[in-house]
Simulated assay, not measured.
Amino acid sequence: MLVAGLIFAAPALIEGGSAQAKDVVVFAAASLKNALDDAGAAWMRDTSRRVVFSYAASNALAKQIEAGAPADLFFSADLDWMDYLASKNLIRSESRIGLVGNSLVLVAPKGSTIQVALQPGIDLAPILGSRRLAMGHVEAVPAGKYGKAALEHLGAWEGVKDRIAQADNVRAALLLVSRGEAPLGIVYKTDAVSDPNVTIAATFPTGSHPSIVYPVALTRDSTNPDAVSFLAFLRSAQAKPLFEKQGFTVINTAGSGS
């Protein structure tokens, strides 16, 4: 799990009492870290209220919420895991909104001379050599699922399916490339621009994978009125540039204010 640059509390620690009753507790996809750290700092500065974040893969966070971990907001990297919690009646459906979008890229370590044309028939195996392709877990982590879909669409999956270094979340996959432990990785554009030690080798065609939409919603059991306020802030004109700075596309806003 990633440690937030702002205020961080893992679910087990929150459960044990590290977050006070007044804190807004947000479970968010790892790829949102930079943008949400900035948004949380701005909201706390404006309101003098507190927000704590737990960052991990969306699938892990959804399962933790299902198991009773105390979260006020869930911010997923894909629709499937929000739908999963909705099917369990664990979110407030009326509060749900698809807030931001992202794109999928192929990254290489900084200074790499690898050039890739992501077109139908591409074979990544010769480029990988004896090494592996880093990506999120392809059956659970949203970035991994998008990546597998894109590789299948391009006809490249069969050539690399046994050569995948599967990570617990997208930032962990990014780290493998950033450290030079993998020659290529599939991550979101926002992750790539956040790490100066990687370079974007290619961008996956939009139609090669499902649209990348990040939904956010209040959890069913949240009783914190400040959570409503923070969600409104995330949808505000004030928060929009904080997401755009990290490379997200803002899909929905709801006026200004917090």
Rank of each mutant, 00 (worst) to 15 (best):
L85Y: 03
A173C: 02
V187A: 00
N224T: 13
S211P: 08
A69M: 13
L61T: 06
D72L: 13
D23P: 13
V107Q: 02
A192H: 00
P196R: 00
L128V: 09
V213M: 08
T190N: 05
L61A: 13
H209N: 08
S31E: 13
A57K: 04
L2S: 14
M135R: 09
V193Y: 00
W157H: 01
L2W: 12
K63M: 15
V107I: 09
D162C: 10
R49Q: 15
G155I: 03
A41N: 09
S31I: 15
G17E: 02
V107G: 02
G5T: 12
P225E: 05
V187D: 00
A237M: 11
I200T: 05
L174P: 04
V24Q: 05
V51A: 12
I200R: 01
S31K: 12
Q64F: 03
A67K: 09
V100L: 07
T206E: 15
D168C: 11
V193A: 10
E15N: 07
V193F: 01
A167T: 05
P183K: 05
Y84V: 04
N59C: 14
F74N: 07
Q246K: 15
R235I: 08
D221A: 14
G129P: 01
R96T: 03
L176F: 02
R163T: 09
F233G: 13
Q166H: 05
